[in-house]
Write a protein that binds this DNA or RNA. Structure first.
Lengths: 235, 235
DNA sequence: GCAATAGTGTCTTTAAGACATTATCTT
DNA sequence: AAGATAATGTCTTAAAGACACTATTGC
């Protein structure tokens, strides 16, 4: 009922962003190195407080632009989950709404205020690294979501430019899932699932083999039936 | 980065609960009738402010117990999404973390403070009814989530008592999806999908036909392959 | 017996997985 | 020609949907 959730209750509200892209062929996340305590020197997700008159999505887009120098262009943004454990921020009670942003070949994140450094991290090489706050859990939540959504949605195309080849699309799946897929079967599935991709009349520049046809994103959002992961490990 | 999400920023944090159960065979949601402005007299979701030292889940369970007189027993609770549009609460800025709770034959919700009435509403008969705040959107979000999760998870069993028949399990799917399923094919799917249900040696009391074998929930959480909805309309 | 509900079997169709094969480029 | 990458075809298997059939109860 929202009964007497009175303002000034001492709880801060923030957003944190898991910005994912394919950087040098690898699934990567934008992290910033904290310049101040707490967690000075450690890497963390970009984020910031929710403005007085902002909706949560607006805050997410603002952080995307300010802290990572990324416009709204063709970035897919969706809410992930909200984290609110009492001790998650040593400075005080902060409830953080986590967002996931996916985009094609995004520019390198820039350094903002209070930030020592900012760059792309390949998710793979981030395996043992400790992150600030509860951001390891947030990142894992995003990876799980992204991996699951590739199965039943057309979301993979948001990692690619407007025109792409089937091989590039397969590369997205292999990078995000960390497994290799059969090229022939993937081609059949991608081109024959209605609404996934639309065939163009042009071809990509050949790279030592038969030139690949170009496609663009189709009008559909869901994959019916889904494209399930079950391939072998290793890309 | 959670930078300076200072306490006392004027934003309140609350939880709202979409409590779903099967009441008289129909998918139903617990609503409370507001006793005070704003939205006095209209029906809304039970909810309340997040306590100073509570994690978000704890707040959800507290509301479940206090406002709906429901223990933690065998209730499945999961976070849905967070709603934070600036004007969603006329009294001031309130960001609300929405939860979904599913349970078997839950007791009737009781009247709490500031509440004129509280009862189960069949989702079906709530079609045209206007709810307080943005709770119509929250409810729709929960229904979508619940309907989707029945496809690829074993969540349907949380709507049933510890021991149940395949027909009852099918009834859950039909009530939540609002469509009818082929009894034979459903039986095959339910009993042959590993981890979904475990066969018992007892039978339910006959109801004018061959007595149905009893089952209990299996150890699995996901349905592989999923049980997709595509049956005819109407229950 | 008949009606009702539970459960099994069979046939068809769809689509995935594992390949082999063909096509078209660079060198 | 050889090698690389793209695309198609074929065969097998898994599993859904339609629906006939058998099983076991109450009346």
């Amino acid at each position: 009922m929202d009964t007497s959730a009175a303002p000034g209750s001492g709880v801060g509200v923030a957003v944190d962003l898991v910005i994912l892209t394919l950087h040098e062929g690898r699934l990567s996340v934008a992290l910033v190195q904290r310049g101040e305590e707490p967690f000075a020197g450690t890497w963390a997700l970009p984020g910031g407080p929710v403005g007085e008159h902002e909706d949560l999505d607006q805050s997410a887009y603002r952080v995307l632009e300010n802290e990572a120098m990324i416009g709204e262009e063709s970035v897919h943004v969706e809410q992930l989950r909200t984290f609110g454990a009492p001790g998650r921020d040593p400075r005080g009670r902060v409830v953080s709404v986590a967002f996931m942003a996916l985009g094609a070949d995004l520019p390198a994140p820039r350094r903002g205020a209070d930030v020592a450094d900012a760059r792309w991290w390949a998710v793979e090489e981030l395996a043992g690294v400790e992150l600030g706050f509860d951001h390891r859990e947030v990142l894992d939540c995003a990876l799980e979501r992204a991996r699951a959504k590739l199965e039943y949605s057309t979301l993979a195309v948001t990692f690619l430019p407007a025109e792409f080849t089937v091989s590039q699309l397969r590369g997205v799946y292999e990078a995000v899932w960390g497994s290799s897929l059969d090229a022939g079967n993937f081609h059949r599935k991608a081109t024959r699932t209605p609404g996934f991709v639309e065939e163009l009349d042009r071809f990509a520049a050949p790279t030592g083999g038969r030139p690949a046809r170009l496609y663009r994103a189709g009008s559909g959002t869901t994959l019916q039936p889904p494209l399930l992961r079950s391939g072998e490990e290793s890309a």
